[in-house]
């Protein structure tokens, strides 16, 4: 069982789209709408990948990246500019 992928995006449409695509490929997925939710989820889950939107209501994607870099140093992450999903990095 691999650890889930965390999708952080405040736009519900994009969040659902990414979740659908990734789940369709067989990956377990968790979603968060803002930075605070992502941090909370991190305390209860281990993630194999975090994909985050750059602009979020309580911070930006780089904050998410920085926070995860400090708290889960082995985790790869991707920040997508303005809700446009960037290509998915290869899974660890």
């Amino acid at each position: 069982m691999i650890n889930p992928i965390l999708v952080v995006d405040d736009d519900p449409g994009f969040r659902k789209l990414l979740e659908t695509i990734l789940a369709g490929e067989g990956y377990p997925v968790e979603t968060a709408a803002k930075v605070a939710d992502a941090r909370r989820l991190c305390s209860s889950h281990s993630f194999s990948l975090v994909i985050s939107d750059l602009k979020l209501p309580d911070g930006d994607g780089l904050d998410v990246q920085k926070w995860f870099a400090e708290h889960a140093p082995k985790l790869p992450s991707s920040s997508s500019p303005a809700s446009v999903p960037s290509p998915l990095p290869s899974m660890p």
Binding site: D11, P12, G13, F14, K16, L17, I21, S83, V84
Partner: peptide, 8 residues
């Protein structure tokens, strides 16, 4: 944004 999701 909604349009991007719709297209996806």
């Amino acid at each position: 944004n909604p349009l991007g999701a719709l297209k996806g």
